[in-house]
């Protein structure tokens, strides 16, 4: 048995932050310039009392409402998040209860960012092919907005909150529908995308909450998310072409054999450069961030759902997924799209 994607749904918080809103807050930046550089015109922002689990539950309920399956049929919950409700208990356990998923189901959180969806698919394939699970609910959910300082335009222009729910079911096929998988990790880049405080290494304190302005005029404290954009860009230029090449080699196919490329939707500038660098035709390169921004581990399932919903994934389409970011962590895989997948 192998895992197949049977359904994908996503959910955005109600509140939005438009480029015009940001331009009003940062008058030195025109809305046109923000749009041009990021390709993002709107981001969704979780309410103060709205957590990643709330977004994940809403996405999962949409999936169940589509008729893909009932909560009682789920036997494993995987939740990818870096903004859990609590240190403990595990947020996936809270979600199991809220969704009415059987107490016989397994549930766990895993802490990854933009590479997380690919890792989640890999875990799901392992659970299914080893006979440990038959219906896996893979959830990705983030409320990064809660980490951002309101005067840090370097990240407020980019990130939005969202969750996605993907149902993976066991199907009897001779060959996997997901894979091969290529993974990579380089923890030496940890400091370039980080919330420095709040964990055991450096708990939050009055001192850590004091904000200061950096050389680019962005303001943040050590309790906020910090992103070194230039370092992240350089890491991406190094790793993404490599991982794409390795995956093609491992699968024994050519770039031309791939029908659609769905990369982590970081921002327009980065994606456009990667697309040109890899010589991927624009028509085969999915872009899905203008109305939601960079939603971290949910960007790939959102883009996949939209591509399928808009008819760009006919039966048997070969899709390459590439996730990369915080950690550093990266992963890539191929999937064969099946007709009848609910989106």
């Amino acid at each position: 048995m192998h895992a197949a994607i049977s359904a994908i749904e996503y959910h955005f918080p109600e509140k939005t932050l438009s480029t015009a809103d940001l331009s009003a807050e940062f008058p030195e930046w025109s809305a046109e310039k923000i749009d041009q550089k990021t390709g993002i015109r709107e981001r969704h922002i979780a309410a103060p009392d709205e957590c990643a689990s709330d977004l994940a539950v809403a996405a999962a309920r949409k999936l169940f409402a589509s008729g893909a399956c009932a909560p009682g049929e789920i036997d494993y919950v995987l939740l990818c998040t870096q903004s859990p409700d609590y240190f403990l208990p595990t947020t996936a356990c809270l979600i199991q209860d809220r969704l009415g998923i059987p107490t016989t189901a397994g549930a766990l959180d895993f802490n990854l960012g933009c590479s997380g969806y690919v890792y989640g698919l890999g875990l799901a394939e392992g659970l299914v092919s080893s006979g440990q699970a038959g219906r896996v609910l893979l959830l990705t959910a983030e409320s990064y907005s809660k980490f951002l300082h309101r005067r840090d335009r370097s990240v407020r222009t980019i990130f939005g909150d969202a969750a996605a729910a993907t149902l993976l079911t066991a199907v009897d096929t001779p060959a996997p529908l997901l894979g091969p998988f290529v993974y990579g990790t380089d923890g030496s880049g940890a400091e370039n995308l980080i919330v420095p405080t709040g964990g055991m290494r450096c708990p939050r304190s009055a001192e850590s909450g004091v904000a200061s302005e950096d050389e680019n005029g962005n303001v943040r404290s050590r309790d906020n998310l910090f992103m070194n954009g230039a370092e992240i860009f350089t890491f991406t230029l190094k790793v993404v072409p490599q991982v794409v090449g390795t995956l093609l080699e491992k699968a024994g196919i050519l770039l031309e054999d791939v029908d659609l490329f769905v990369f982590h939707q970081a921002n327009q500038y980065m994606l456009e450069h990667l697309r040109k660098r890899l010589k991927i035709p624009a028509g085969k390169f999915e872009l899905a961030f203008s109305d939601c921004g960079n939603t971290v581990s949910s960007t790939i399932p959102i883009a996949l759902q939209r591509a399928a919903g808009e008819g760009r994934l006919p039966q048997g389409s070969l899709v390459m997924l590439v996730g990369f970011g915080v950690g550093y962590s990266w992963g890539a895989t191929l999937l064969r799209w099946r007709a009848g997948t609910r989106v």
Partner: peptide, 18 residues
């Protein structure tokens, strides 16, 4: 910082210099 990204991309595209 945006111009810096532009320069990094330029060097990567034209010279393959990371």
């Amino acid at each position: 910082s945006m111009a810096m990204l532009g320069f990094i991309a330029l060097a990567d595209t034209n010279n393959g210099t990371r």
